[in-house]
Nucleic acid binder design. Structure first.
Lengths: 247, 247
DNA sequence: CGACGTGTTGATCTCTCTCAATTAGAGTGG
DNA sequence: CCACTCTAATTGAGAGAGATCAACACGTCG
């Protein structure tokens, strides 16, 4: 992916993202070091890596995860365009989680002190960082509720609805219903995100599909019965995703 | 609890907390509206409450939680002295989780715009808010790993070690080993925090106690065999995550 | 063409849940 | 002072959701 100046950031044109002043964008641009690409299934940040850079996800999907020493893995959340990577590393000295690319990803790399500079020079943006961090925590909260208290079928329904909504908010083309949204997860990713075994994930997925609730094909996800899925997931109304600051 | 001026805040004397300049403390003080007390087992923030105040936990224990419509409850994390309450509410318009007092708690109440003022006027403090938010997320990450991938026994061992460390860091008196730390949770709280049933929590707790790993008595927790507990939890002796080979 | 990753399915097995009942302590009212 | 109630902890028995084990199918790729 060709390097993009922040003032021409493709994310900025989406309705989802906040608008910023020219000064703010200039500041961001001055803190941006470069733009890099990681291939699918490679590590962006190694688990335990002490002092990684600060990234912003420009395009593609990734995920945060932790593992136990015997290899059991828990995916903490999925990262989509606009998400931060590495804020926690800057905060807690010891990194605790790893980040892996799910698809090929394009990342903006920022200076080590970018977070601090942002807070110091542009309070609005600093506030945005706090906002984004709190928002990411809210997503993890949701997953914890799923893993702790929902059945396998409910968990999967919840994940599908949530990911669909996030992906749809980033999708520029129309006709989501017919074509669905990009969905690069394997069943193993779903299992590891929901605290299930691979086999049981497969069987549950097949059951939902047999009920006609969804369809996963060619790396795309279509929700055929959002109402039924939402009911399974115990989600209230069609809460649309809130606008988010883009740093 | 008697209102305390921020410059004489009891938390400030603890080694755990950062020192701030007089100006910063003055700013905090100017943003603080009052100090309130909630009794044990009462709601500090109702689940779904739209625009609650921003609190800081001055003394006592509380917890954040979410519930499904049929009553299943998941405790997201426990809140101890020094923790924020309500940052997420300020960020996402719709509150998503509730907060309940576990013991009687003393809270400092801040102005609605305190978070913004902090960022605007004192970048260092604004940065601190981001730090705390990221830190809280790291705690939820740990719990998600537990609930998703650890067995009941491992989960409980992990929770005991983690809570012990947090409580011990706030304990001013010595002789922690002999007296243990305050531990106001009931078995139902443990169950709801770990995604387990009450009955199984009880049986597992009894098993750990029979093995001589810990003792809960008179609302206090003593760890009798930190090594064994940490091994169960897949943590090193000091409770830090074990180093892992970088692939 | 064999190796590998991903998905699929059937057959057990077991950890954890649910149901049920008992004990102990704290608080309350007569 | 004693029944009565409520909460928290405890224990046993049976049931079940989901884990583990084992094959197999299919497409991609070196």
């Amino acid at each position: 992916m060709k390097p993009v100046p922040c003032r021409a950031c493709p994310l900025r044109s989406m309705p989802l993202f906040m608008t910023h002043s020219d000064e703010e964008i200039g500041l961001i641009e001055s803190l941006k070091k470069e733009q890099v690409v990681f291939r699918a299934d490679t590590a962006v940040i190694h688990e335990g890596q002490a002092d990684g850079p600060l990234y912003t996800l420009l395009a593609g999907w990734a995920f945060r995860y932790k593992t136990l020493s015997d290899g059991r893995r828990q995916i903490l959340n999925f990262l989509l365009a606009g998400d931060f990577i590495g804020v926690q590393q800057k905060m807690t000295e010891a990194t605790v989680h790893g980040v892996q690319a799910l698809t090929d990803v394009a990342l903006c790399v920022f200076r080590r002190d970018a977070l601090w500079e942002l807070h110091r020079t542009a309070p609005t943006l600093g506030f945005g960082v706090t906002w984004l961090t709190a928002h990411e925590e809210a997503i993890v909260d949701d997953t914890l509720l799923s893993v702790g208290r929902r059945s396998a079928m409910e968990r999967i329904a919840t994940l599908l609805v949530m990911l669909y909504k996030r992906a749809a908010a980033l999708d520029t083309e129309g006709d989501l219903v017919a074509r669905g949204v990009p969905f690069p997860l394997t069943q193993l990713h779903i299992a590891d995100a929901l605290g299930l075994s691979l086999v049981h994930t497969n069987k549950t997925l097949r059951k939902l599909e047999a009920l006609g609730l969804h369809r996963i094909e060619d790396g795309r996800l279509r929700l055929l019965d959002v109402r039924a899925l939402s009911r399974l997931a115990d989600l209230y109304g069609d809460g649309r995703p809130s606008p988010r600051p883009l740093i």
